[in-house]
């Protein structure tokens, strides 16, 4: 039912803090970064803007209020690439909304969270790529799984086999050596003799 509803009306993506409902199919992908972030000489923080919605009176936003009073300026100074908006809303629960460069949006309710929890959630938004609802097919992925190339029946096959006439003496010698063990030992003995004389 809710899936059908979503199809018609564009609702914001559900928060990762909300309950996960199994009646919707989670999209899956391999682990990747947007635009090969970090391969060049710089890293671009994917969090574009942060909106903190807070109430000045209610107990539910006590931690959020404390965070704003104590850590907001330092955070803004440390991360000047994030635009921070603080929205006071009377008698409503506190939220933090992160908007990302890719256009995705993350919404996290902060009701009854203390200062350290608020800090944790805000930093988790900061370090994210912004796509919360993806199921990773694997924890690691590579575009080039084999450097040597995939094996085929023709790889490392000696090329002179086309010219041989079967039964071939060399090939049978490999399978069934004509020399007996005694003969081999005798040969080794003679070789050693030669080595000593020279």
């Amino acid at each position: 039912m809710s899936q059908l509803f979503r199809r018609f009306i564009s609702l914001p993506i559900q928060s990762i803090r909300s309950f996960h409902s199994f009646d919707e199919v989670t999209p899956a992908k391999y682990i990747s970064t947007r635009l090969q972030n970090g391969i060049g000489s710089r890293y671009v923080c994917q969090l574009q803007r942060l909106t903190i919605q807070v109430c000045k009176e209610f107990r539910t936003s006590f931690g959020t209020r404390e965070w704003i009073a104590n850590e907001l300026t330092a955070f803004a100074r440390q991360h000047p690439y994030v635009v921070i908006y603080v929205q006071p809303r009377r008698h409503r629960p506190p939220n933090v909304i992160g908007e990302y460069l890719s256009g995705d949006r993350q919404w996290i309710p902060l009701s009854n969270c203390d200062r350290s929890h608020v800090n944790w959630w805000i930093h988790s938004l900061l370090t994210q790529q912004g796509d919360p609802q993806w199921r990773l097919l694997k924890q690691m992925h590579t575009d080039s799984p084999s450097i040597q190339g995939t094996w085929t029946p023709f790889t490392n096959k000696p090329i002179d086999r086309t010219l041989r006439i079967y039964p071939d003496k060399d090939l049978t010698d490999i399978e069934y050596p004509q020399m007996t063990a005694t003969q081999q030992i005798k040969e080794l003995f003679e070789q050693e003799k030669l080595n000593k004389t020279t």
Binding site: R42, V44, C45, Q48, R49, T51, P80, Y81, V82, V83, Y85, Q87
Partner: peptide
């Protein structure tokens, strides 16, 4: 939307790419 400050956005944009 109400949470929009174009100057701040531009300022952040310059910092984003260093």
């Amino acid at each position: 939307l109400i949470n929009w400050n174009y100057d701040a956005e531009l300022h952040a944009c310059t910092h984003r790419f260093g």
